[in-house]
Design a protein around this nucleic acid. Structure first.
Lengths: 233, 233
DNA sequence: AGCATTTTATGACCTATGTCATGAAAATAT
DNA sequence: ATATTTTCATGACATAGGTCATAAAATGCT
């Protein structure tokens, strides 16, 4: 966990959260942030910690998760470049409701709630950017609840794969390539299923030639349309 | 659906969303809003409609819901005094992802996205208020997904009752009184269950003397601790 | 008040998904 | 490369919750 030595300029401007801002605003905010790097596996935030600011991912991936009472892990979401985590309730700081762990080497940029609050008061356009990003996340969270309430296991697995595909899929000649950073257990927890059920769904998709695996961590989507079709019947 | 004739001043200042604002800001925003009243059952927003602004509840209750493919209703959330809908329209006008229907006589205050956006640029403190409110909703939405993923039916029903209790319960000598505005089907959909399962859970709670019903629409929570305890084992 | 309609409760049954156990495959360490 | 560990897949089985049918209770209407 070090001060970021690489990033002495320009990184903030590349984040979706701030990319609409005029250059002078970006310059201002760069003075407020602290850059940190983490190694794969490092715990960034532990559930219950007092959260003092906002973390924005500049590079790498992380998972946000909690533990249920019987100890098993529940992955709430993945953080990728441009995603953020932390205390947006700029009013009172609250204990973190989930932990964050680096899935790869990770570069974060951190802003204390206090400084961010002041900054947003002075730069209303930035506040609107964040508002937009929050609204988008909210919609996504509500969509997930809807899915968990309405869809069966195959539909949920399909929805998750498609979601991962849009967020991190790379189009190759073999199909849409997903480089998975989570194991089956963690992926299953994201859609409220058990590893075994998740695994059976993947097997089913494989038999249909909708997907194909390459080892445990790489998966190609061959037939996006069929996966998408599952959600609609 | 009429212009609000009652409300010629002061209503905005009473909304949580704006209550932190200095009086002159409140005065400014009151010029931007249009007040509307609806009767019980009126549809305020239909899924797919172009959303043109933000709706804030000044009085009454409404439900936000979608339909799944087999036509059954899924209630995403309840709107009560101070709650709002349409935050996504702040970005760009988008088709509504859910419908909104009045559960009681309803009073809304509506602000067009365009005007609100301009207003927020001029009044950054208001933008921060909205940011806080959105952050709170996001936490709630994530908590719901977690619950749907981890809890069994009794735990989910208990969680829903407790949630309703904090939002709209009135403490009486008989217990915490819940005046339900939704039927079992709609309540069940909120936690991803079927009416029958929901009903069986209530029966179970009744047998344990944790709750008691008075007709279909009134319910008293007698033993909050036991309901709360369900979620933790 | 009385009748019709809607909502809720409950039994019987069924199925999807969870649970447990095990072997195979892949990943990781030596 | 080989050994060790972890992850994944799959069968057998159990069960929570869904489905369907029906009756009772509330609610609403005239």
């Amino acid at each position: 966990m070090l001060r970021c030595s690489l990033c002495n300029r320009g990184c903030i401007g590349s984040l979706p959260l701030f990319k609409e801002l005029p250059p002078e605003d970006i310059h201002d905010i760069e003075h407020l942030v602290v850059h940190r790097t983490y190694d794969k596996g490092d715990v960034v935030v532990r559930e219950g910690d007092e959260l003092v600011g906002l973390y924005i991912v500049e590079g790498g991936q992380a998972k946000v998760f909690t533990h249920n009472l019987s100890g098993s892990e529940y992955v709430l979401r993945l953080l990728q470049v441009g995603d953020f985590y932390g205390e947006l309730s700029l009013v009172s700081s609250m204990p973190a409701s989930a932990s964050v762990q680096a899935l790869t080497n990770l570069k974060l940029c951190c802003i204390s709630s206090h400084k961010l609050r002041q900054y947003l008061l002075d730069h209303p356009a930035a506040a609107l950017s964040i508002l937009d990003a929050l609204a988008a996340r909210l919609r996504q969270a509500e969509k997930l609840s809807e899915e968990l309430g309405l869809l069966d296991s195959r539909q949920r697995v399909a929805a998750l794969l498609l979601n991962l595909a849009t967020r991190q899929g790379r189009i190759t000649d073999k199909g849409i390539k997903l480089q998975l950073q989570l194991n089956r257990d963690e992926l299953a927890s994201m859609v409220g299923l058990r590893q075994e059920t998740f695994s059976r769904c993947l097997t089913d998709f494989r038999r249909n030639n909708w997907i194909v695996s390459e080892g445990h961590k790489v998966l190609y989507i061959l037939d996006e349309a069929s996966l998408r079709g599952l959600g609609r019947k």
